[in-house]
Amino acid sequence: MSENRITVENLTHNYGTRCALDNVSFTVPRGEIFCLLGPNGSGKTTLFKILSTLMPPTSGSVNILGHDLSIDTKAVRKLLGVVFQHPGLDVKLTVTENLRHHGHLYGFRGKNLNSRISELLERFDIENRSDDLVEELSGGLQRRVEIARAMLHSPQVLLLDEPSSGLDVGVRRQLSDYLISLARSENILVLLTTHLMDEAELCNRVGILDMGKLVVLGTPGELKAQIGGDVVLIESENCKTLGTAIADRFDVFPVFTENCLRIECESAHEFVRDVVAAFPDDIETVRFGKPTLEDVFIKLTGNPFVLEEDRRD
C-alpha cells in the first residue's frame, strides 16, 4: 500500500529553539494534487525542504512511495521531480542545455536523453525557444521550462514550492491546467505549496498550515462547508468599535482582518439589511458572498478579533 502514497508521520522540525514544524502528519495518494496552504512563516517551506530531501527533519518520518526518506534518500531522489520557489535554471545556458544538464545528473545520456528532451519541449510547447538562453525568456516561460526539467527523468512525485510566485494571473491559470493534466495523464502525485487561495481551490485536497501546525485537511469543498452560510465583509473607519457594537447587537462573531470586519452568518441578505439599518453612519462598504478558502483560513488561523476576549469577561 505504502508504495502508492506519501506518508508523513509526526514530522517536527526545530531551528534552534524555534519550532517550524510541529508534529505534522498526513497522507497523499498517487494521482492526487495536494496543496499545502499557509502564509509566510507557516512552516510550508520547511516542510518542502524536508520532502525534497534538502534537509533532514528533527524528528518524525516521511515515506515516499514505499521508501523512507531518511534511510533510502537516493532512491527517493530518483522518484522526485522538484521545482523550487527560487528560479533554479541556469540563465546563462539555453533551454536545451539546462535540460541536458539535468538529464546527466539523473544518469540519462545520448540518444535516450535527446529524445526525452525533444518530447518534453514539444509537450510543454517550448520547442521554438529551445536554443534561446533562459535569461531571454519571460517569467512564465521560465517556469514552464523548470517544470519540464523536473519532469525529464519521469518522476513519480512532483513537488512544487510556490510554483506561481511572480507569475501573472493568466499564466498562473495555465500552469494549474498543466499540473492537473500531468497528474491525470501520468498518474503522478503532485504536491505544491502556495499562499494563493485560487491556486489551492484547484487542488484535490488542501492542508492548511499555520505556525508549524497542520490545522485542517480536506477537499476545498469540505473545508468551505465548515463555514455555515455566507461571509460578510464590512469596511469602516472605526472597525473595532463597530465590531464590538455588532457583536453586542447580533448573534455573530466579527473577526478583524486587513482593515475590515469579516462576519459569518446564516443568510447574508437579511443580516446586511439589518446591520446597515442599525449602523447607517459607521459602515462604508459592505460585501458578501459564499465562503472561500480564505474565509476558512481566517476562521481557523486568523487572529480572533478583540471581541472574543471582551466576550469572555
Binding site: L54, R77, K78, F84, H86, G88, Y106, R149
Partner: peptide, 8 residues
C-alpha cells in the same frame, strides 16, 4: 538546490 536533490 536542484543539483542537491538529484541522486548525485
Amino acid at each position: 538546490q536542484n543539483v542537491l536533490v538529484a541522486p548525485v
